[in-house]
Design a binder for these strands. Structure first.
Length: 215
DNA sequence: CACCAGGCAAGTA
DNA sequence: TACTTGCATGGT
């Protein structure tokens, strides 16, 4: 059975780490909030911010929409960049209000391309945040690229060192079956292997399961 | 103490 | 177009 290196990389990671069962969140709305809060930020800090909102039962579209930007900012302080992220959350809520008449379910059920355009039009939502929401909150078949994807696979010579988001995304979309469950697990596994074996400013780790690739 | 973390937008030349 | 900078907390 022949397969390509990208499918093989997925299999190696899955065999090593097992299913990751992402996204860590109980609802689509929690995932949308988490996607903004985790921008350039460690997840453990994001979890504290999410817990703050949960304790006050504010982690729903209807509840959060009642707060001012400054009020949101105080709850999410542990996530860092809290003033910026509070405004970005507000921008996202405003988009749902303006385009989907305040009905979150309408956004979640919308067509993928339309939903992506609406997300990218929100100030503070870029390609990674948009794709994370499309995949993990909406359930659309999108491959999410992040800093780890670039680091891990450029280190293994499977993506260019100097490249951009869409180019990396193309590599994976062109070399993997269109399968949202696979995209879901693969991204989570990439985060896992980066945190475990492929840290910044460290040499290629000999214990990385991707060493098993026949390049 | 320094460095890092699941980005993005705005400013500069 | 191609760099650079601001945003900020908490863990290692």
């Amino acid at each position: 059975m022949k397969t390509n290196n990208y499918t093989e990389a997925y299999r190696l990671l899955y065999d090593h780490f097992g299913p990751q069962e992402w996204w860590p969140g109980d609802s689509p709305f929690e995932i949308m909030v988490g996607a903004i809060l985790t921008q350039n930020t460690n997840w453990s800090n994001v979890q504290k911010a999410i817990d703050n909102l949960k304790l006050e039962e504010l982690l729903s579209y209807q509840s959060l929409a009642l707060l001012t930007v400054d009020e949101i900012a105080q709850y999410i302080r542990p996530a860092g960049y809290y003033n910026l992220k509070a405004q970005r959350l507000k921008n996202m809520l405003d988009m749902v209000a303006a385009i989907y008449n305040g009905d979150l379910a309408s956004f979640l059920d919308d067509e993928m391309e339309t939903a992506r355009e609406n997300l990218l039009a929100v100030k503070g939502i870029g390609p990674e945040t948009a794709d994370s929401i499309l995949l993990y909150a909406c359930g659309h078949p999108v491959f999410v690229v992040d800093m780890y994807t670039h680091r891990v696979f450029s280190r293994h010579n499977m993506v260019e060192e100097e490249t951009d988001y869409l180019s990396i995304q193309d590599v994976f979309l062109n070399n993997l079956p269109q399968d949202k469950q696979l995209y879901n697990e693969f991204h989570a596994l990439i985060v896992r292997v980066a945190a475990t074996f492929c840290k910044k400013n460290k040499p290629l780790c000999s214990r990385c399961p991707l060493q098993g690739l026949n390049l």
